[in-house]
Design a protein around this nucleic acid. Structure first.
Length: 111
RNA sequence: GGAGUUGGUUGAGCAGUCGCUAUAUUUAUGAUUUAUAAGAAUAUAGAGGAAAGUCCGGGCUUCAUAGGGCAAGGUGCCAGAUAAUCUCUGGGAAGCGUGAGCUUAUGGAUAGUGCCACAGAAAAUAUACCGCCUACGGGUAAGGGUGAAAAGGUGUGGUAAGAGCGCACCGCAUUAAUGGUAACAUUAAUGGCAGGGUAAACCCCACCUGAAGCAAGACCAAAUAGUUAAACAUUGAUGUUGUCCGCAUCGUUUAUGGGUAGGUCGCAUGAGGUGACUGGUGACAGUCAUCCCAGAUGAAUGACUGUUCUUGACAGAACCCGGCUUAUAGACUAACUCCACCU
RNA sequence: GCGCUCGUAGCUCAUCCGGAUAGAGCAUCAGCCUUCUAAGCUGAGGGUAGCAGGUUCGAGUCCUGCCGAGCGCG
């Protein structure tokens, strides 16, 4: 499974498109938004603010985990534009917990 | 063996699978051809000692002048190092520590101005309060208490009482000699005490500072639309910080309205790293050999599994370097000091 | 990438160019008043002045370094 530039949201119009009318799934760590994009691919965007997670090391860790999980599950998400928002708790949680949480979100969005 | 001081090095390792970014090579597809675009495979490389804070300094780029005066700001013992510094090294002075060592915005209070609460007679001005002495004109600053600070200190002689009034030692100032590049130190002579503190209060003296910052700036491509009104117009406006002079340009500014903000370069060979030798007390410099070591742009280093140990801190490049400051689990190592014991 | 401002009681602010007990309003608590509450009156508590150093006899105030918050320009 590869994860290329095509599979990312690259500018603010694409983000706006998702925010306007989205399916929503959230828990204590993350909020996930999704909207159909009319393509074969799934596309991912990340919103991880400096206010919620102070250190850049932690921000990068969350980003990488989300990307990794997205990469492994992209087939079942095909045709969706997805935006992941991090919450305050996300930098206090272990990798495995975060991955489990993501897996749940993917499942709920797929339905 | 214990306690400590000052430096230096390092910042979990190994294997497997799947991914990300860059570079090189190869390959197939589309296209009239080239350029190019997007894709695949292989190989190689891929965050730090602080990448952080942005506190200093420099490179680089642009601004027609980097010219002058006045402002404004900074630095402040001496000498050196450096591209440069509010950095570093060595030395002097003062303070702290038994010591190794550590700390210091460390010029000037005899250029001038200001401030010094309360207490105290008095806060720098002496016809000085209590006092002491007296020939009742006055003399005096020993003693008293206040305070952060009160006109050299201690002793002794001396006196009406006292007093650098005299002397000895200590402190201080001036002059000279010697040592040192210098800061300064030592010695000698002279003076009889020069007249409190504060310059991180204004200031004086010496030295330094043109401004802006990679969103600098250069190039390519695309798109476009100006109109109306008002103000000023060489005694004006604008031009890279304040102001005046000087210099450059000729329209400028405000309101209203329309349009564009895509890409490439800048951008990774550098005051570079490593090792050896030489010079220097040292910061550092020189010579030779060798190496090429991130370059993203909604922004790359990760995930999972297994395994070992000491169970892993602080923390993520964004034009680049040199410092400083702050955060930091530990591990290793060198030199030195003090205490106790043994030989 | 530059430049600037602020941090004082639970909250909002004073404290002159350094001088000693850091003050005011609201809030809190206690008492009075009222049948009870509100309003009113009286009193009390609450502060290492963001943190750490330095200058000074003396620092909330001056200087330096950190921490936090906010603003402006491109």
């Amino acid at each position: 499974m590869r994860f290329t530039r095509k599979q990312r949201l690259l500018n603010s119009q694409e983000y706006k498109y998702v925010f306007e009318d989205a399916l929503k799934s959230s828990d204590s760590c993350l909020t996930v938004l999704a909207r159909k994009n009319g393509l074969d691919l799934a596309r991912l965007g990340l919103v991880i603010s400096k206010k919620r997670i102070r250190n850049s090391v932690d921000r990068n860790r969350v980003k990488r985990l989300v990307r990794e999980s997205f990469r492994n599950n992209q087939q079942c998400l095909a045709g969706l534009d997805i935006v992941v928002l991090a919450k305050y708790r996300a930098n206090k949680v272990d990798n495995s917990v975060l991955l489990q949480s993501l897996a749940k979100h993917w499942l709920s969005l797929k339905l």
